[in-house]
């Protein structure tokens, strides 16, 4: 019994999801963050964030085509996390670290929260 494991498969699939997002193909939700709009795929959002998982497993909310986040959420922090979801690359900058951390807490992305805390600690 042989299993041929394609080691790049997960990252190749994610790359294609990101291409679909950038070309707005089969994106099924708009996330509104302080008047800024982000198109995305519900399945990717809920696979990466416990908040989105809770929203989209709700039988009523799963049909929403637009979701408004708390007005306190920073659009730039959200953009960093959305990029991470589709690329596995978390771009942490000193100027955005607090916004990124607070948005990750809000989206319940626990591993990213831990990483932000470690990044802040390393800067002290």
């Amino acid at each position: 019994d042989n299993c041929i494991q394609f080691t790049r498969h997960a990252s190749d699939v994610l790359l294609n999801f990101n291409r679909l997002r950038s070309r707005n193909i089969l994106t099924d939700v708009t996330i509104l963050v302080n008047r800024q709009q982000f198109r995305a795929h519900k399945t990717v959002l809920m696979a990466c964030s416990r908040l989105f998982y809770t929203i989209f497993t709700d039988s009523v909310k799963c049909n929403l085509s637009a979701i408004s986040l708390d007005p306190k959420v920073d659009p730039e922090g959200f953009a960093v996390l959305l990029e991470f979801m589709y690329t596995s690359c978390l771009s942490l900058k000193d100027s955005l670290i607090v916004a990124t951390l607070n948005t990750a807490i809000y989206l319940q992305m626990d591993h990213v929260v831990d990483t932000c805390h470690r990044f802040i600690k390393s800067r002290d």
């Binding site: 299993c3 041929i4 080691t7 790049r8 294609n16 291409r19 950038s22």
Partner: peptide, 21 residues
């Protein structure tokens, strides 16, 4: 998988969707 002989394929696994049509 236990008892399965796993062979690693390092190359691309699927087609690449282009950035733009």
């Amino acid at each position: 998988y236990e008892g399965v002989n796993t062979i690693k394929e390092m190359g691309r696994s699927i087609h690449e969707i282009p950035r733009q049509e």
